[in-house]
Design a protein around this nucleic acid. Sequence first.
DNA 1: AAAACGGGGAG
DNA 2: CTCCCAGTTTT
Length: 347
Amino acid sequence: MNFSNKLISWYLQNNRDLPWRKTKNPYFVWLSEIMLQQTRVAQGMSYYLKFTETFPTIFDLAKADESTILKMWQGLGYYSRARNLHFTAKHIVSEFNGEFPSTYATIIKLKGIGDYTASAIASICFDEPTAVVDGNVYRVLSRYFGIDTPINSSKGIKEFKELAQTLLDENQSGTYNQAIMDFGAIQCKPKKPLCMFCPFNESCVAYQKNKIDVLPVKEKKLKVKKRYFNYLVVKTDDNNTILNERKGKGIWQGLYQFPLIESDKIINKDELISLEEFINFFPEATTISLYNKKEIVHKLSHQHLYTQFWVIETATLSKAKIDWKSVEKYPVPVLIANFLEDFLSKK
DNA sequence: AAAACGGGGAG
DNA sequence: CTCCCAGTTTT
């Protein structure tokens, strides 16, 4: 048996029972693929079920408010996925009358869809023989063929895509693509792969040469920036607060947060109230207290956010328009959601 | 070509 | 703690 036949044979006995595999409806497949970008199946599952229930068709998704979609996406991360998802839903409804494009070439033009997702949808839904290359595929191929080209280099991306395409079973491309991904996720795992009873172990270069732990090769690691966040949690006498939407570049676009003052280090109360930014915000005397005695470190892939929440109790404030009872309706970063859960439980 | 973009789970 | 997950977009 050749590589792809053996892989599909493995898949028929070991595949995961996943809800988006019960259909070839491109809307559902697209939804699952976007949610699972850089996201584990276990983490994305509940979101997929919630979205398909709330938005049974692409028309329902297109009709929704962006804020509603972001709120439902809250906690899943990489929020540009949710915004692009909404944009593309509206685009497909208005430009294509709701009919999903059916070829790789047309699918990849959609916002939020790159080579991987276009290949996945084209093969799974429309039987177009386009090979997917995700993290699983890089790992399986680099190990089995003993390829040490860095998977995140231009050369590696090209090389692995071409290899994947030659291995693809063109008569069942969707099944093959899902087979190699499941194989990577279940058998050929990043750590402690199950080589002892792997159907490929006799012909796997990495296993035979004892290079399982060095493949795939990935070059350079990212540097993490430290930032210092001071959130001003306003609580007026008439039970209002202030939330701002994050706009422009950077993290958490479209999500809401308390007024933020960023500093260059951890600061104390005296330092906070002497900052020009703070004085401009609260000219009047107010009661200020630090909510978390020890700074909260919220870790993102590229930055560590050292965060202090300052509770500011004051008289009625014209800028404070948001009733505390409605705060939890806004889409917020997990950092803010965690704070709210604790803060609101102690009232 | 490199950096930015979230959050969580495994080891 | 480090690594990495059904990657894409922006710089």
